[in-house]
């Protein structure tokens, strides 16, 4: 039984990792896979995602720097406020009841899915009509 559970957890990680490796937000999929199929509590699933993201991201960043894909300029304008609000929100998550957190996460996923469908099927023309994006950030 324990072995089955370990395999399910590893498979959930594998699937989340595949999406993550493709740069599509693997964590957003990993968390529900862990809670729905692995029976992992919501807070623990979120913690697993955060911790497992770190080595993956570090490796990916090295690769992307080599490929000159990362634009450092302006990134701090997002990083500094985000680090502060992220710390506060993590404390808040710790105080939030698991069932409330799980349902809020479900609502967040539905919004993300609807946004994805919209940008795939309805925003193409709007995107094409726009001026081509330039590579360098302006801040």
């Amino acid at each position: 039984m324990e072995i089955v559970r370990i395999i399910v957890l590893a498979l959930a990680g594998l699937l989340g990792g595949v999406f993550g490796g493709m740069g599509m937000g693997g964590g957003t999929i990993l968390i529900p896979l862990l809670t729905i199929f692995g029976g992992v509590p919501q807070h623990a699933a979120q913690a697993v995602n955060l911790v497992s993201f770190v080595p993956m991201a570090a490796g990916a960043i090295i690769l992307h720097i080599r490929n000159k894909l990362i634009r450092f300029k302006g990134a701090l304008y997002i990083i500094i406020p985000a680090a502060l609000s992220s710390a506060g929100a993590s404390l808040l998550a710790g105080l939030t009841e698991a069932d409330v957190l799980k349902r809020a996460f479900g609502g967040f996923m539905i919004l993300l899915a609807l946004y994805s469908f919209w940008s795939e099927f309805f925003s193409q023309k709007a995107r094409k009509a726009k001026l081509p994006a330039h590579d360098a950030p302006t801040v």
Binding site: L9, G13, G16, G20, H43, Q46, L50, V51, G59
Partner: peptide
């Protein structure tokens, strides 16, 4: 992650198998 770990929300029993899966999946993806 530091705050989740300090708050005792991270469990190696879940984290180790899932984390190894994530790394393998990341390479495949």
């Amino acid at each position: 992650a530091v705050i989740y770990i300090i708050a005792g929300k991270f469990d190696f029993g879940y984290g180790l198998p899932a984390g190894l899966g994530v790394i393998a999946g990341g390479v495949l993806g």
